[in-house]
Amino acid sequence: MSAFFYGTLQSPTVLLRVVCGPEAKPEVTRAKLKSLKLQPATLKGHRRYALKNLDYPGVVKSELSECSVSGILCEGLSRQDILRLDAFEGDEYDRVTVSVSTIATKDHPEIENEVPTQLYLWTAGHHHLEERDWDFEQFIKDKQAAWMADRCEFNDVDKVELELELQV
């Protein structure tokens, strides 16, 4: 399975915390990262917004066709990964299918193409949107370290792990 990440999940630190859990050993997170294919991509016909008083963004469909969102296409996700990502995103987002355009890079020189994937679309209302784009570099520089230490979203993700273990 695959997903397009345009916010905090572009950070390998955040992504691995979500899909591997809090107690994952370094060799587990390294193996997980190696199993994923991360590639720059663009989502057309949508716009990313900073959210009022929040450290993460929301993406909504745009009426302007020239709008686009840059992010990361993450391929190789398991069903369990998607369940953990669903819990992380919570009820403010709906997981929907979209197509993204991949961007050729030195590490991934494949020809650019359209790829169907999953997107977490902001659904908690336009009144939360600021009239500016969210800044990933600023998040990494100023907020990621503190953010990783104290996020209630991780509690929801970790509950999924416990539920999955109980089902086995």
Rank of each mutant, 00 (worst) to 15 (best):
M1D: 05
S2I: 00
S2W: 03
A3W: 06
T8G: 02
T8S: 04
Q10Y: 02
Q10E: 09
T13M: 07
V14C: 02
L16K: 01
L16E: 00
R17I: 08
V18Y: 03
V18N: 02
V18Q: 01
P22D: 07
E23A: 15
V28C: 05
V28E: 13
R30K: 10
R30Y: 05
A31H: 00
K32T: 13
K32P: 04
L36W: 00
K37D: 07
L38H: 07
T42M: 13
G45Q: 06
H46V: 10
H46P: 00
R48I: 15
R48M: 14
L51V: 07
L51E: 12
L51G: 06
K52Q: 06
L54Q: 15
E63W: 01
L64P: 02
S65M: 10
S65A: 15
S65I: 12
S65Y: 09
S65R: 10
V69T: 04
I72L: 10
C74Q: 05
E75Y: 02
R79Y: 12
Q80V: 14
D81S: 04
I82R: 04
L83G: 06
L85Q: 04
L85G: 02
D86M: 00
F88I: 03
F88D: 01
F88R: 05
E89S: 04
E89T: 03
G90Y: 05
T97D: 07
S99N: 12
S101Q: 12
S101K: 11
S101N: 14
T102Q: 12
I103K: 15
T105I: 00
T105E: 03
K106G: 02
P109D: 09
E110A: 15
I111Q: 14
E112T: 03
E114S: 15
E114R: 08
V115R: 08
V115C: 09
V115E: 01
P116W: 02
Q118E: 14
Q118M: 13
Y120P: 01
L121N: 12
L121S: 09
L121K: 11
W122S: 01
W122I: 05
T123C: 14
A124F: 07
G125V: 04
H128A: 13
L129P: 09
E130C: 05
E131Q: 15
D133T: 13
W134K: 00
E137S: 02
Q138S: 13
D142W: 10
K143Y: 05
A149F: 08
A149Y: 07
A149C: 08
C152V: 14
C152Q: 14
E153T: 04
V157N: 06
D158R: 08
K159I: 11
E161Q: 11
L162P: 04
E163K: 13
L164G: 08
L164T: 11
E165M: 10
L166V: 12
Q167C: 02
V168L: 14
